[in-house]
Amino acid sequence: MLLQVRQLTKSFDDKTILRGVDLDLAEGQLKVIMGPSGCGKSTLLRCLNRLIEPSSGQVIFRGKDVLQPGTDVRALRQQIGFVFQQFALYRHLSALHNVTLALRKLRGMSVREAHAKAMHELGRMNMAEHADQYPAQLSGGQKQRVAIARALAMDPAVLFFDEPTSALDPLMSREVVSVIKQLQLDNVTMLCVTHDPFLAKSIADRVMFLDEGVVRAEGTVAEIFGAHADPRIRDFFAHEHSAA
């Protein structure tokens, strides 16, 4: 197992967001976490690379509990690519330099090396011809593809997606979906948080349903999307479908 999460909890001052979450992610697997907004799925993702400090539990990444004191948090984060809902591209840097920044600063690559690596990753995302453009000049789908290239450039052990299609219109969503599918063929390990059923159905190996800070169900796409025994899950999909 690449990643094992055990009994993870998180509470802010007076609110409990996560109430003992268990999660396993194998190498090469793509797992989707779904659930209504406010269920804690984005918090869960941020707890795993400690952008948010969990309250208790274990996060075992490559055999080591990364919640132990003394863990090199920055080294941990460098092994986890993170793709945000709002892209979070550095607006003052071109697409190319968005990708090279971490290679230069964190991997210590030379300009030439970083450039070559970045162009390779942008090429994988079909964004090579836009390398010199700035974020403001790109469409939402293009921005998200640059963001994915930026995450991939660090050769991460796993890629986290936080609602990667929520800020995109359906057409651009498809762009991102096809990119994720391609990464799946390349055996990239991925963990994706979304409430977009289209995205989940298109890509997931397994789906985890999170509700009110606990895992309600886990299974294949067919199991979760089919007429599920749990009424809350049925309600969720009925609602999402009518909304879509």
Partner: peptide, 18 residues
């Protein structure tokens, strides 16, 4: 400066001064 860009840099493992 956009908070989300700072968070993206943190998620990459960059240090405060970087």
């Amino acid at each position: 400066v956009d908070e989300s860009e700072i968070m993206a840099a943190e998620a990459m493992g960059m240090s405060r001064s970087q």
